[in-house]
């Protein structure tokens, strides 16, 4: 069991290094992060906040879009790609379980995400510190970003494998992955914000909206990172009480999402007919 998980994780890492996925992910993260740091460096000093803290706020927004995208790109052909190549039936005749195969893939992909995020944000953080100084809160916020971003990524890895397990072809899986990203990361927010405006302070605003916000992994991630930091209250305009309450719920959501989505992916993979 352990050997087959590590065998699968090892081979997936090797493949990702060979076809430059690792390099591309790291570069993508680093470049975007650096761009944001220097774009944000202009208006500093105004509020007396260090550049690192300001940067983390914009990196949080970047992560909301980029981490799910990277995760989906890594995972969308996890099952359908093997099936299309014809290597899945052979793999399944080996004395190992489907669970072990999926676990191996997930571990490899989480490691890649972790690497890309830590290197990218590490370099960006360093650059921000050198250019505009850092406070203890800024460092803390950056570290929080580095361990919560892989959780967000992992949630979308599970979603990617699940969609892959519903597809006979990788092209279908790719289309579904793009749709999932659009819906969960972009349209969801637009939808509930629209509803908020329409509701104009009614039951939806007080009871449904906070739940919907926490239930979405991308929003949960935003809340966890934003409410914790000093820049947060500035950026979000959220009152402190709501912040504290939903912060814990969001953290829980952010931890439950990867567990749940990977579990669902496992169930879908178990049922996949070769």
């Amino acid at each position: 069991m352990i050997t087959s998980i590590s065998a699968v994780a090892g081979i997936e890492l090797r493949i990702a290094i060979r076809n430059r996925w690792v390099l591309i992910s790291v570069l993508l993260m680093t470049l975007f992060a650096l761009a944001l740091v220097f774009a944000g460096s202009a208006p500093t000093g105004v509020l007396g906040i260090d550049l690192l803290t300001v940067s983390v706020a914009s990196l949080t927004t970047l992560t909301v879009y980029l981490a799910p995208l990277l995760a989906l790109l890594l995972s969308f052909d996890g099952i359908s790609g093997e099936a299309e190549r014809g290597s899945l039936p052979l793999l399944l005749t080996y004395p190992t379980s489907r669970g072990a195969i999926l676990a191996g893939k997930a571990i490899a992909h989480i490691l890649i995400l972790l690497l890309a995020i830590c290197i990218g944000y590490g370099i960006a953080g360093l650059a921000a510190t050198l250019a505009g100084g850092a406070s203890a809160q800024g460092v803390e916020a950056l570290l929080r970003l580095c361990w919560t971003a892989p959780l967000l990524g992992a949630a979308f890895l599970g979603i990617g494998y699940t969609l892959s397990g519903f597809s006979r072809q990788t092209s279908t899986a790719a289309a579904l992955a793009i749709a999932a990203w659009l819906i969960l990361v972009v349209l969801y927010d637009l939808g509930i914000l629209g509803a908020l405006v329409f509701d104009d302070g009614g039951v939806f605003t007080s009871h449904v909206f906070p739940v919907l916000l926490v239930a979405n992994p991308a929003d949960a991630f935003r809340i966890v990172n934003v409410s914790g930091s000093q820049a947060a209250s500035l950026a979000s305009g959220m009152t402190n009480e709501i912040g504290a309450a939903s912060s814990w719920a969001s953290l829980l959501s952010l931890i439950l999402w990867p567990a749940l989505s990977l579990y669902v992916a496992m169930i879908v993979f178990r049922r996949y007919e070769t």
């Binding site: 081979i11 090797r14 493949i15 060979r18 076809n19 190549r85 014809g86 290597s87 039936p89 052979l90 005749t93």
Partner: peptide
């Protein structure tokens, strides 16, 4: 098992 059509990962 030796499958009818084998396609291993080209990168390995």
């Amino acid at each position: 098992y030796l499958p009818e059509t084998v396609n291993f990962h080209g990168m390995l």
